[in-house]
């Protein structure tokens, strides 16, 4: 599995996805190949996919440290930890000063699994921002 195969599959999928979402893929070149996937209608929250030796990582950036209301950091962290298990397939993490939501898939995942993962990740991201809105500026 590599990002180009994923891009090809999602592009040929077009309107026929099982998830009802339409994906637009754009590879980003760099030391590690990254695929930027925009969900149509949700372009503000793109998903970044990278394939490593043993897993497929799908990451969506949520908000920056600077967007957290002063004084509510600890409470927000607790809420995020509590939400981590109930949230299907995705988990929270932090990259640099940005909070992210991510899902990791095995290299042997099918295209269908990947498509499902992307849809769930996108839905989770929207829901999380909505739910955590009280802690954000």
């Amino acid at each position: 599995m590599n990002i180009h195969k994923i891009a090809d599959h999602l592009n040929t999928l077009a309107d026929n996805s099982d998830t009802g979402l339409v994906f637009d893929c754009q590879p980003i070149s760099g030391e590690v190949d990254v695929l930027q996937i925009s969900v149509i209608g949700r372009e503000e929250l793109p998903i970044f996919v990278s394939v490593t030796d043993d897993q497929i990582l799908c990451i969506t950036y949520l908000w920056g440290e600077d967007e957290v209301k002063p004084g509510s950091l600890a409470e927000m962290h607790t809420s995020m930890l509590e939400m981590n298990i109930p949230m299907p397939l995705s988990s929270f993490s932090k990259i640099g000063d940005k909070y992210v939501i991510f899902g990791a898939l095995s290299m042997s995942s099918s295209f269908h699994d990947i498509e499902h993962e992307l849809a769930v990740l996108s839905n989770n991201a929207l829901e999380v921002i909505d739910d955590m809105g009280e802690y954000l500026v």
Binding site: V34, I59, Y61
Partner: peptide, 22 residues
């Protein structure tokens, strides 16, 4: 490395991460 590629891409395309609530 992926993060730095993403960050480079954002700065080169003149777009940036919007505020999450926005």
């Amino acid at each position: 490395k992926a993060t730095s590629a993403i960050t480079d891409n954002f700065s080169s395309s003149n777009s940036k991460l919007l505020n999450a609530k926005d």
